[in-house]
């Protein structure tokens, strides 16, 4: 007979049933109505949008201001004086140098990072952890500390300053490309390559026709990050470049240290902000292919 045990169960069942939460039960804290939460959400959205957007405001206002004396709320006369001054400062050449430098850095750092990420994701690499730490270290290293030293080495080795700048910036970009590709490879299913091989594809054919198209969006994101490293750099170009390479940040810095150059600085800054934004729009659109693991 199981009567005694089932009695115990019934007691417990009743107790648990009495404790059961019923819909609308009062007494639970932190209850918020949808209306209040909605207001709070809209308010915080507005506040955060303001926080991120506010620094863009002076660029837009000053770029088209010919004269804007201190107490006035808005520029007095609009015009292209800032643009003219920026062009006179060598803006076009600097823009071209910046673009070229960033593209070269992206073109080198992206394949290096992708290959390293592939090797790290396979777990057959000896000293894998050490390699990961080394490849990640440039992110944490104070750039000026490394640059002061490497500058001496490069000078003594007679490396041309332009090559030196590219080398150091590729090294700064490698952590970003390696680790964004590692994330991509963590979600990548080797089954696609295996399927191609079992269907008769050579490893080269499988690489070009299957593997690369599938990781193309991740490669684009990696390349974008490497491009940003080159595009944003000031210190490496200044110290290692030794004046041979005048990029956009360098002439922005020299304009900004002068007085009364506001509209020229704003025009130059705007021209440094827009290209990455255009690339960002392209990169975030290239998300559709999904080589994720298929369960």
């Amino acid at each position: 007979m199981t009567l005694s045990t089932s009695n115990v169960d019934v007691d417990r069942a009743q107790r648990i049933q009495h404790e059961r939460r019923m819909p609308g039960d009062a007494g639970r804290p932190l209850s918020q109505s949808r209306g209040v939460m909605r207001t709070a959400r809209i308010g915080s959205t507005a506040l955060m949008s303001l926080w991120f957007a506010l620094p863009f405001l002076p660029l837009v206002l000053w770029s088209f201001a010919n004269s804007w004396s201190a107490p006035d709320l808005l520029p007095m006369t609009l015009g292209v004086d800032g643009l003219t001054a920026a062009l006179a400062n060598g803006a076009v050449a600097a823009f071209g140098d910046s673009l070229l430098l960033s593209l070269i850095v992206a073109a080198i750092a992206t394949p290096l990072g992708a290959m390293a990420a592939r090797a790290l994701s396979r777990r057959t690499l000896p000293f894998g952890r050490l390699v990961s730490v080394l490849l990640f270290s440039p992110v944490l290293l104070p750039p000026f500390a490394a640059v002061l030293g490497i500058n001496v080495v490069l000078l003594r080795a007679w490396v041309p300053p332009e090559l030196g700048v590219i080398l150091v910036l590729v090294v700064v970009a490698i952590p970003y490309t390696t680790f964004s590709m590692r994330v991509a490879y963590a979600a990548y299913d080797d089954g696609f390559d295996e399927a191609a091989r079992t269907l008769g594809a050579t490893s080269r054919f499988a690489l070009w026709r299957i593997h690369l198209p599938l990781i193309a969006p991740a490669l684009a994101r990696s390349a974008f990050l490497a491009f940003l490293v080159g595009w944003s750099d000031y210190l490496v170009t200044l110290v290692v470049g030794g004046g041979q390479l005048v990029t956009l940040p360098l002439i922005i810095a020299s304009s900004a240290s002068g007085i009364g150059n506001e509209s020229s600085v704003a025009v130059l800054s705007l021209s440094a902000v827009i290209p990455p934004l255009i690339l960002l729009a392209f990169v975030s659109r290239a998300r559709n292919l999904n080589p994720g693991k298929q369960s």
Partner: peptide
């Protein structure tokens, strides 16, 4: 094979990081 894949990234990073900090 894994080592060959990772070396092109490791060599410049090691050169700049270890060489740079070491020289400093």
């Amino acid at each position: 094979r894994a080592a060959l894949l990772v070396l092109p990234a490791v060599i410049p990073v090691a050169f700049v990081v270890i060489g740079g900090v070491g020289t400093t």
